[in-house]
């Protein structure tokens, strides 16, 4: 028995591979639950009952899915071109910092202030992503490493601001900035925490990314570059253009997600892990689980959003550590990658 490369992956397997991967991830996490003395069935039930079983749970799932969808769409674009942006976390924080500046220090207010907050957040996210983009385009620096490392830099910048110059006068010494003024707090849907403008942007990004990939000239260039760098060079597709476009767009969307988190949820800039809880990393899984398809990515964003909500619930109800959710996410990505490889091969006797 040996593995042989398939010439093309049949349609049923393309659909079965990610589902199989999910089952594999569930199996692995079930083992973890059992080892911690919790019945896996009970734990899975708690996860999904809390996130999907009530209107509050559902609304929280949408809250978590909003930044995931924004960044997931950017990553769909970027990963299609084979530009591996692992730096959404940092780009999100850059957007959050810019929004905080607009909210607390720009002297603006009302709708212009709100608009400037989003524009500044998008620009900051894009600018943060421009650093690895320029390094890759000019010097062929590996974007995986540069984007990843810049996440830590962004965290340190945020920490510096909240412990230093931006520490709030009214926060009793906590490492928070002051609360945003009313105009800088995003309107929410009824009594939920769903912040409408960000959700609207996230939903708008879906057809936009779909259009770019399926119709636009840039999308064609991204697909060519993603399929083969040498073919792109041969076809005269500019590498710099592709790299800059991918990183700037995904950085911009991450920046918008950052605006949403500080202006829509926390209403202040706070400790980096408090602002984002690893959305930038989870978004990578969102894009992969969505098979780099902008429409399927909506579903995968909701699914991973529900896992994050469920993760909070098993902490409270079953006394399991929060890290379980990270393990879950990691297992999903790992099994997805395995599934990806396996579906390209078949077993031959």
């Amino acid at each position: 028995m040996r593995l042989e490369k398939r010439e093309s992956t049949p349609r049923w397997l393309q659909a079965a591979a990610p589902l199989g991967s999910l089952c594999l991830a569930f199996a692995a996490v079930s083992a973890l639950f059992a080892a911690s003395g919790v019945s896996p069935a009970e734990a899975v039930k708690v996860i999904f009952a809390s996130s999907l079983g009530s209107s509050y749970g559902l609304s929280e799932t949408v809250v978590k899915a909003t930044p995931l969808l924004l960044m997931g769409e950017g990553l769909v674009l970027s990963f299609t071109a084979g530009v591996w942006n692992i730096g959404c976390e940092g780009q999100l924080l850059a957007g959050a910092v810019a929004a905080t500046w607009v909210a607390l220090y720009s002297g603006l207010g009302g709708v212009p202030g709100l608009l400037l907050m989003f524009v500044a957040g998008a620009a900051a996210g894009a600018a943060w992503a421009l650093i690895p983009a320029a390094l890759k385009a000019k010097m062929d620096a590996n974007e995986v490493i540069v984007t990843l490392m810049l996440n830590y830099v962004a965290e340190k910048v945020v920490e510096h601001l909240i412990y230093g110059p931006w520490r709030g006068a009214s926060e009793w010494g906590f490492p928070y900035t002051d609360e945003f003024p009313r105009w800088a707090q995003l309107p929410t849907l009824g009594a939920t925490r769903i912040h409408i403008p960000t959700l609207a942007l996230a939903l708008a990004s879906v057809p936009l990314v779909y259009w770019v990939l399926s119709r636009s000239k840039l999308g064609f260039e991204l697909k060519v570059y993603g399929s083969s760098e040498s073919a792109a060079e041969y076809a005269g597709v500019s590498k710099a253009r592709v790299v800059l476009a991918c990183l700037c767009v995904s950085g911009m969307l991450a920046g918008l997600a950052g605006v949403g988190e500080v202006a829509g949820i926390h209403h202040r800039l706070r400790y980096p892990r408090g602002v984002s809880c690893g959305y930038g990393y989870t978004a990578i899984i969102v894009a992969w689980l969505g098979r780099l398809n902008p429409v399927l990515t909506v579903l995968s964003a909701l699914f991973l959003g529900s896992l994050l909500v469920g993760g909070d619930a098993i902490q409270v109800k079953l006394g399991l550590p929060r890290g379980v959710v990270d393990v879950f996410n990691g297992m999903i990505l790992l099994s997805l990658l395995v599934g990806e490889v396996v579906s390209r091969y078949r077993v031959v006797r």
Partner: peptide
């Protein structure tokens, strides 16, 4: 010739 085509497209 594999340099002259994008295989996934």
């Amino acid at each position: 010739r594999l340099k002259a085509v994008a295989l996934d497209l």
